[in-house]
Amino acid sequence: MSTMDSPEDFEIARVAEPEHVLVTVRGDVDLTTADQLGRQLEAAAEEDRDVVVDLAGVTFLDSTGVRTLVDAYRAGRRRGLFVSISGARDWVARMLEVTGVAGLMATRMRPEMPAYRPDHPGLRPPLG
C-alpha cells in the first residue's frame, strides 16, 4: 500500500448532542476518505438518534462522498431516523446542489435553523 493512504488533513469527530448525534467532518472527502465517513455515519446511526453531518470544514467533496452521504440518509430512513447535512460552503454546497442532495438532506445554512425536512411538514421553513 502507498504511504499516502491516510490524508493527514482529513478528520471526523462524532459527538452526542441532546437532540442528535453530530458528526463533524474536515478536509477532503474523496475515494480515499469516503469509507471512513461511511463507517462514522453508520456508528452514529447505531445510537438510534437523528444525525447531523457538519460539512463546514469540508474542502472537497466528490461523487464518492455524495454517495456515502445519501447511503447514510437512506439507511437512516429505514430506521426511522433523519441524517441531514449542515454548513456546506462554497463549492461543496454547489456540488450538493448539482447532485440534488442539498434538498434531500436538508442543508442547514445557519446553525440556528431547524433542519428542513421535505417529507416532514411540521419542520418546513416559513414561506417568504
Binding site: 493512504d5 490524508p7 477532503d28 474523496d30 472537497f60
Partner: peptide, 12 residues
C-alpha cells in the same frame, strides 16, 4: 502517478 487513491489529491 501510481494508480492509488492517495495520489488523487496530488492530481487535484
Amino acid at each position: 502517478v501510481p494508480a492509488d487513491g492517495g495520489y488523487l489529491n496530488v492530481l487535484r
